[in-house]
Amino acid sequence: MRPSTSAGPRRTIVWSLRILFVVVVFGGWILANATGSISPIILPQLGAVLSESIELLRESEVWAAAGITVFEMIAGFGIAAVAGLLVGFVLSRKPLRSAIFEKLLAWGYIFPISLVYPLFLIWAGVGLPSKILFAAASAFFPIAYNTMKGLSAVPVRYLKVGQAFGASAQATDWHIRAGASRPMILSGLRLGVSMATVSVVLAEMLGANAGLGFMAQQASSQFQIPKAYAVVLILVVITSLLLWLMETLLRDPNEKLKK
């Protein structure tokens, strides 16, 4: 879900406060470092984290790890998107089918799939495939659910227009059902993106042999605290960029009008 601050007279105020927030957080960090009130094992020097980050970015190791993480996220999301759209579409075709599977999908949506992550490790090993499958499984449910709901709740008046203008069955699916349900499907996909990213990072920390999550976990277990922070920082930046990119791609072109 995106904050809806895209326009309005408060824009400058909102941004000033956001910047202020960041300044307060980092200011507090520096202050805590200076006074020594928080142990460096918990909160390392900000300077050390930043220089560690720059150091890390010079090494190919971190780029390889980042590549793996991003690949897992994209592959997991891709599989979930294809499967979710397909399943949602097929289930929406018949009221009986959607009635049967609605609860199941809704339940999969809220069930913390991370509880069964160990099973993914058993099925697919400790390498990439378990991460990808896990991310795909998490992202699948919101996508399938929203697709099914969106497609089966097309307002009758749009279908009536299609009928009056002689739309064929395919034209009705493509021009009317798909269009009317697009906002809901896109929001399912956006949810899927965040599920996939969160799941990958979580999975890499819970059991992996590669990726940024694994690196962060390794560093912290070896008490390389500034390094752990630096990896997490890189992870946050990369994930944010990925989320931002996908949100932009998956935005409804006339979404702003519906507010």
């Binding site: 749009y158 227009v161 009056a164 021009h175 009317i176 697009r182």
Partner: peptide, 19 residues
């Protein structure tokens, strides 16, 4: 329905908002 013979304008706004 054959809109080339008889075409409708409906009471409620029936345009497709996504187009």
């Amino acid at each position: 329905p054959d809109p080339r013979q008889a075409a409708f304008v409906f009471q409620d706004y029936s345009l497709f908002p996504w187009k």
